[in-house]
Simulated assay, not measured.
Amino acid sequence: MHSGILRLWLDLPENTSLKGKRQLVQPLIRQLRSRFNISVAEVEEMDSWKTAVIGISCISNSAIVADQLLNKALAFVTDGGFDVVIRDFEIEIMAV
Rank of each mutant, 00 (worst) to 15 (best):
V43P: 11
E14M: 12
Q68S: 14
N15W: 02
E92L: 15
G55D: 00
L10W: 03
A63G: 15
F36V: 07
G4T: 02
N37D: 06
R35G: 06
R35A: 03
L69V: 13
S39L: 02
V77S: 02
I64R: 14
G80M: 02
F89I: 06
D47V: 10
G55C: 04
R22C: 09
E92F: 09
G81D: 00
V96N: 09
N61H: 09
M94T: 13
R30C: 08
T51H: 14
D47F: 06
G81W: 00
N71E: 04
R87I: 07
S39G: 14
S3D: 06
A73H: 01
I54T: 08
I64H: 13
N71D: 04
L10I: 09
A95L: 09
P13C: 07
L69N: 06
L69A: 10
I91L: 03
V65C: 08
P27N: 01
G80V: 02
N15V: 12
F36L: 04
R87C: 07
S48N: 15
F89L: 05
S48T: 12
I86C: 10
F36G: 10
D88M: 06
E42Y: 09
A73P: 08
N37K: 09
S48D: 15
G20N: 02
R7W: 01
I91E: 00
L28K: 03
K21C: 08
A52G: 10
G4C: 05
M46L: 13
I59P: 11
W9Q: 13
I56H: 02
N61R: 06
I59V: 15
E42C: 14
T78S: 15
N37G: 08
Q68R: 11
F36K: 04
G55S: 05
F82A: 07
M94E: 07
P13T: 06
A52E: 00
L6G: 09
R87F: 06
P13L: 01
S34H: 11
G80A: 04
K21P: 14
H2I: 02
F82I: 04
A41Q: 02
F36I: 06
Q23S: 15
L32M: 09
K21T: 06
V77C: 05
S3Y: 11
V84P: 13
R35P: 07
D67H: 10
R30N: 12
D11F: 10
D11W: 05
L18W: 00
F76G: 08
L12C: 12
E44K: 11
W9T: 15
L74W: 00
G81Q: 03
Q31F: 05
C58R: 00
V77Q: 00
G81M: 02
V65E: 08
R87G: 11
V77H: 01
V85P: 10
E42H: 10
I54F: 06
N15K: 03
I5K: 11
I93K: 03
E42Q: 14
H2F: 14
V43Y: 03
E14A: 15
L24I: 14
A95N: 13
K19T: 10
A95Q: 12
L70M: 05
S17V: 08
L12F: 07
T78V: 08
I86H: 05
